[in-house]
């Protein structure tokens, strides 16, 4: 049972981290709390429903296209709607809420309100010690890990990744050394939405898909980044692992309602004891 609890927790954590990294990246660079992040997750899943579920495209190609479409949509949203609001946290938050509602409604009108199922590309389970691990979630976990490694390498070694870190640390100094903030903003927003789209596309065959499916992952991402530290990338990883594992333990031993309470109690404690989060920096 302990093995199963750990496996369940890690599988859930990886998706939370994927969502939270994009969410915290946008905040770290643009100081915008993007409440539409869950809707980019939902867009990825709906594109997956069309490309893989209806049109029969190969699974991995459909996941990639769904992620890219999410990213492209993110770049367009940043350029047209968020750019004028960079640094204005309240206006950015309201804009993101509006975009979230518009995207939900657009999908509602296009696909209808009922939750739909996407064909499972992988079925069956394998065993890790005594834990049963479904193949579809294993593939999701491997893909999520791969995305996280690529993201880490990109942020650590790519010029654009380094530029993003520089802007996140000090935008004025970054622009003095020739970093164009506009390019960084668009790239960061696109990258965050790409990751949300990929997460949605990966999870589409695991759960059901519908216009409102982004609300819960968004809530989890928010909890994770508050716990880890808003704007902190390592914090998102740590927060994701903590929330995923604590949920798994508490739900198995008690109930999902208690698990939800525990998540928020953890957040409350962090906010009181360490307002910047576990690995967050002080206000810029």
């Amino acid at each position: 049972m302990i093995e199963q609890i750990i496996v369940n927790g890690i599988l859930a954590s990886l998706i939370y981290i994927l969502m939270a990294l994009g969410f915290t990246l946008i905040f770290g660079i643009m100081r915008i709390v993007n409440f539409a992040h869950g809707e980019f997750y939902m867009i990825g899943a709906m594109v997956m429903l069309m490309l893989f579920g209806s049109m029969g495209l190969p699974y991995f190609l459909a996941v990639l296209l769904a992620g890219l479409l999410g990213g492209l949509l993110g770049v367009v949203a940043e350029r047209l709607l968020f750019r004028p609001l960079v640094g204005d946290e309240l206006a950015g938050m309201i804009m993101s809420l509006a975009i979230g509602i518009i995207l939900q409604s657009a999908i509602l009108l296009t696909f209808g309100p009922a939750e739909q199922s996407v064909t499972r590309p992988f079925s069956g389970t394998w065993h890790l010690f005594s834990a049963a691990v479904p193949w579809d979630r294993t593939v999701v976990a491997i893909c999520a890990l791969l995305i996280l490694v690529i993201f880490y390498l990109f942020m650590k070694y790519a010029r654009l990744g380094l530029a993003m870190q520089a802007v996140a640390q000090d935008p004025e100094t970054a622009s003095l050394v020739g970093i164009e903030p506009g390019t960084v903003y668009a790239s960061a927003f696109g990258l965050a939405c790409l990751m949300a789209g990929l997460a949605g596309a990966l999870m589409a065959p695991v759960y059901t898909v519908g216009p409102y499916m982004g609300e819960l992952p968004m809530l989890k991402a928010f909890v994770v980044v508050i716990l880890g530290g808003l704007g902190s990338l390592p914090g998102a990883v740590l927060g994701g692992l903590l929330i995923g594992l604590s949920e798994s333990v508490v739900t198995t031993l008690f109930s999902s309602t208690i698990a939800l309470i525990v998540s928020f109690v953890l957040v409350l404690m962090i906010v009181v004891v360490r307002p910047t989060g576990l690995l967050g920096r002080g206000a810029r």
Partner: peptide, 13 residues
């Protein structure tokens, strides 16, 4: 369980 829940692996464990 909560109505908006989708991950039931811990519950079934």
């Amino acid at each position: 369980y909560e109505r908006n829940q989708k991950d039931f692996q811990p519950l079934f464990t």
